[in-house]
Structures are given as C-alpha cells and as structure tokens.
Amino acid sequence: MLILTFMPIDTEPWVWIKLGILAMGTTILIVWATWFSLWQRDEYWRERGKDPKHPERLPEGTAE
C-alpha cells in the first residue's frame, strides 16, 4: 500500500484503484484484529478453567 501511495500516477482510475485497495486492506486488518482479540480472550479464560462461551458455568471439579 505504501508503494501505491508514492506512485506518481494521479489519473482518475488509479486514484479509485488505490482507494479501493486501501479500503480492502483496512477491512482485512480490522477483521483480523477482531478475530485475534476474541481468540486471545477465549484462551485467557480457558487457561483459568472457565468456558468463554458460557461464563456462568462452574469449572469442572468444584462442588455446587
């Protein structure tokens, strides 16, 4: 994306192409960051013996 920014081509189609590529990259980055963040949260709770999808459940081996 940095290469596209420094290209001296300023005709109308290239501006839209550069904008489209930048928008796709931004979308991919946001989706990946969200997925990674949720994965980290789930791993954090799994290490502590809790089910991240159902936090109200007690860990196994505890008396009710």
Rank of each mutant, 00 (worst) to 15 (best):
R41A: 06
E43T: 14
A33M: 03
W16N: 07
W32Y: 03
P59S: 12
L22T: 04
T5F: 01
L19W: 04
T26N: 02
P59Q: 09
P59R: 14
P55V: 00
M1P: 07
T27W: 02
D10W: 03
L2P: 00
D10K: 12
T5R: 07
G25R: 04
G25P: 02
I17N: 08
T11G: 09
M24Q: 12
D42H: 05
W32C: 00
I28A: 13
Y44S: 03
A23W: 00
W39P: 00
E64A: 13
L38P: 01
T26I: 00
Q40M: 09
M1A: 07
F36M: 11
I28M: 10
I3A: 13
E47I: 01
P55H: 01
R41Y: 12
I17G: 05
G61K: 07
R57N: 06
Q40D: 00
E64L: 08
E64P: 04
R48L: 12
E43R: 15
M24C: 15
T34R: 13
D42N: 13
G20W: 00
G25C: 09
F6Y: 08
S37R: 08
L19G: 12
K18T: 11
D10Q: 13
T11Y: 04
K50Y: 15
I17F: 15
D42Q: 03
L38Q: 14
M1K: 08
W14S: 10
W35A: 09
W16H: 08
I17Q: 10
F6I: 13
